[in-house]
Design a protein around this nucleic acid. Sequence first.
DNA 1: AGCACGCCGACT
DNA 2: GTCGGCGTGCTC
Length: 735
Amino acid sequence: MTKILKVAVSVPLRRLFDYVPPAGTDAADLKPGVRVEVPFGRRRKFGMLMGLADEPEVDRGRLKEASAILDSEPLLSPDDLRLLSWASRYYHHPIGEVVAAALTVLLRKGSAAEWAGERLLRPSTEDLASAEQACARAPRQAALIRLLREHPNGVPHSRLGELDWDWRSAAEGLIRKGLASWCENREADAPACHSAVSPPFTLNPDQQEAIAAVRAALGAYTAFLLEGVTGSGKTEVYLQLTQEVLARGGQIMILLPEINLTPQLQARFRSRFSVPVAIFHSGLTEAERRRSWLGMQRGEVSILLGTRSAVFMPVKSLGMIILDEEHDTSFKQQDGFRFSARDVAVMRARLLDIPVVLGSATPSLESVYNVSQGRYRHLRLPHRAGGAAQPGFRLLDIRGHRLREGLSPALIAYIAETLARGEQALLFVNRRGFAPTLTCHACGWVARCRRCDANLVVHAGDHRLRCHHCGFEQSLVGSCSGCGSEDLRPLGLGTERVEKALGEIFPGARAVRIDRDSTRRKGRLEALLNDIHEGRVDILIGTQMLAKGHHFPRVTLVGITDVDSGLYSTDFRSGERTAQLVTQVAGRAGREERMGTVVLQTRHPGHPLLHVLIREGYSGFAKACSEERRAALLPPFAYQALWRAEASDIEAPRRFLERVANLANQRTSRDLQVLGPVPAPMARRAGRQRYQLLFQSGLRNLLHGNIEALLPRISELDEAKRVRWSIDIDPIDLY
DNA sequence: AGCACGCCGACT
DNA sequence: GTCGGCGTGCTC
């Protein structure tokens, strides 16, 4: 009896599809991990062969024949497939979409997986002018030669593909005449610096100890939490660990939270190692992504720097995974397939039996908990390299003080002193725009978004009102739409407003604003950072962007205008986030020999966690905050899964989630809490009503078992058809 | 998710 | 009379 192909197709259905092998193909020759072209409904799709079976799960009469096998060798190894199956089960996400997340768009669309580098047609002679004459009777060959003259280093295959005539025959003609040849450009991303291998830096004892511990674990699974204060030399540890992995003939994957962090690190890796370094993030073109992907898959590239989407990339002989800034929430995909690249990385290391290193100056409470449970090994780098001092904290009680655009007289004085010393000050403001609200002083009307439960944000720069949640915008109105009064006032603080105020208070100072608005244009952020480093800036005003990874050696004062907004919030994780943010922003100050000061404006100077953070630093905070979580039975002491539903109909999401809650309660277990449904924190967004339902349990298996049992019944519900719903395992934003 | 089938309003 | 609105049903 012929074998049945079990194929993952990229559709939101939680199952595999059975096919008969294409005519003339013996299923016995097929290995899982090859792509299969299949008829699917009325369409053709590309799927992934996940396995072979003796019997189909549907009637034989319903089976169709697969149309083609795309790959002679598997694109994904059994290890890769095991990881994807685990992720599909753990995140309760359709297998086809999970597999799609491991491929690039071109590979998903059936593109060939033949060469990692782009093929180039390169001239074989210097004298192209006479070569063109020699081809006078072959106009197409002559045309190709003119193209070769424009690209003396070779015409990329993709460029040839843009020609609307038969360039292949012409190229073959040129090759026969010895005028051109094909070559493979495997290192298009990595020119020049391959030969320059800079020597490693000398390590301090902490770094030596950390490296020795990880080195000893090579070849087997261990998860490490590398807790290193800002400036403690984590990157050097990563570089030397990379060296260790390469020396053993392995490949290494280094995952980072943001694209804008990669260039500096990329430069450091490229100047240190003589092997190709591949990059993988959403800013690359599809051809570049495929090149990096195939380079790692075939083992031709040894080092990968990538963002969360790279965690599923196949790697021929992966020796170690490093994930830097492990606390960063951008490792969690927030839509569609909601995986955590950090947790997937740990599971991948476990399945492959290799070490994984999670680095951070401010580890997540989840990772701190895993250390306390003995699941992760703790490595510490508590000292700043070069002996730079840790910044000093000052709590500024702003109660009863007259503020000028959110700035207290004391903070203004601190800034003045800093400027007088010729040093830079950094102001952290957690909202972009001029003011988060526009209100009518006469009647109290507030500018609201018509599609969301949110206020419109005033942008003074271009005189517009914007909704930061759905993208709605309109020009700044001149009068109240309620009472007609023209006394409209911006309420609250945004980066633009603080920038304007500082310009008035310090007219001679050069202030720059760094937020999504001021850095939207390509290259703008780099230009601003360059100005800052060259000392052409006195005051920096910015959002979270300033807290991430950038080094500002000239900054000696950091001001946080409003810590309270992060301390008092409905989200139980906001305290942890605020402490991470404060510590990270503080880490930007007082590099090298200059001592930094961090000033926190607050109306709650007695807040216990704030005090712990200042007195004992982040690890003291983490301990205290963990105790609160333990007492409240919140993560990491409980496991959560969040059901979300949205629809334009007001009732549908609530009715659907009530059905889910009922089904869950039928399976009663005291160990599973079903909380809700409740309206999402912003119940209406982009014109859709949003509800959520939280499952929580101290027992992970029980939580997952319940979800698994529920899912088939939920898919069949009539209510499910009227909403868009999803499930988020280990949610980090309860929104 | 796509894509088609299917039944009700304003247009050549 | 038809083009097209998006409800609902299916994909081995």
